[in-house]
């Protein structure tokens, strides 16, 4: 190894390390804070590692708030949203890539239009709609709301992805007498799996983290999702920082796990989908 490559390598790893520290420091600080006993929170200088570390904050917050119930609610809502958004976007993507669509542009504009509505603009009309339908305090209201936000992006990725699946396969299947629906379900969908997984992950994350709609659409404490449960820990006077961080980490853990397991699909899907084939 020559000196210059050694230098380049050192610089490379150093840059990476600095970037890593900068990006992960806040998360480290969350973990660190959540493990501190209450007396240590305001210590000055702050402790970077508490020798008296404890899970007390986790136990306390779990004892006072039904976080598991909130997690289950979040899980139901996020899963429901994922199912709705992925099915609808897969259908859309198939329609788009397999037929000659006359109003394609209009449809795309429409899709994108829906993606950029400021959430705060929609709170009241959306609540009115859901209350007219009698859906306040139901999972369905949240699933419908989040699906509408997730769908455009999901469709965008899948359109790119489906386009990369050769239409000859459809033709071959059609000659064998398969119906459109068969082709969609048995030929295209299996091939589009990485794309579907990625879209599912995006959608799940979006639904898991969303707050404002859950805030207004659920009033029953049994229906709260985790984002609302965590927000309710912030008082005007009182923020138990260690408990808040503990709750936030408990709330983020499921998505972190899912993303850790499935993360390679993300890059794959964007590679296939976002580029024009």
């Amino acid at each position: 190894m020559t000196r210059s490559t050694l230098l380049t390598r050192t610089a490379f790893w150093l840059t990476l390390a600095v970037a890593l520290v900068v990006f992960l420091f806040p998360i480290y600080w969350m973990v660190n804070t959540s493990l501190k006993p209450s007396e240590e929170i305001f210590l000055s200088p702050p402790t970077f590692y508490s020798v008296n570390w404890t899970f007390d904050a986790y136990f306390d917050v779990l004892a006072n708030r039904p976080l598991f119930r909130y997690l289950i609610n979040s899980f139901i809502v996020a899963t429901g949203t994922t199912i709705v958004a992925v099915s609808l976007s897969a259908l859309t993507a198939y329609g788009f890539t397999r037929f000659k669509i006359r109003f394609a542009t209009a449809f795309i504009v429409f899709l994108i239009f829906t993606k950029m509505l400021p959430e705060t603009l929609l709170i009241i009309p959306y609540f009115q709609l859901m209350s007219k339908l009698g859906l306040i305090n139901t999972y369905l209201s949240l699933i419908l709301a989040y699906s509408s936000f997730a769908l455009p992006f999901a469709a965008w990725i899948l359109i790119g992805f489906f386009r990369s699946i050769p239409t000859e396969l459809d033709e071959a299947a059609m000659i064998d007498g398969a119906s459109r629906l068969d082709i969609f379900l048995k030929v295209v969908l299996p091939l589009a799996r990485p794309g579907l997984v990625a879209v599912a992950m995006f959608t799940f994350l979006l639904a898991w983290n969303a707050y404002v709609f859950a805030l207004v659409l659920t009033t029953d404490a049994d229906m709260f999702v985790i984002s609302v449960g965590v927000a309710n820990l912030v008082g005007e006077y009182q923020v138990e920082w260690n408990e808040l961080m503990a709750a936030a980490l408990v709330g983020a853990a499921p998505v972190l796990v899912i993303f850790s397991i499935l993360n390679r699909h993300l890059v794959e899907a964007i590679t296939a989908g976002a580029l024009k084939g």
Binding site: F127, Q128, S131, T219, A221, N232
Partner: peptide, 25 residues
């Protein structure tokens, strides 16, 4: 009695939204 729990800063937002639809607590 059904208590409606809400973070203090969002209390009014939640109430107004529901009141607009005639669904306020």
């Amino acid at each position: 009695i059904k208590p409606v729990l809400v973070a203090r800063k969002d209390h009014w937002t939640k109430f107004v939204t529901a009141a607009q639809a005639g669904e306020a607590p």
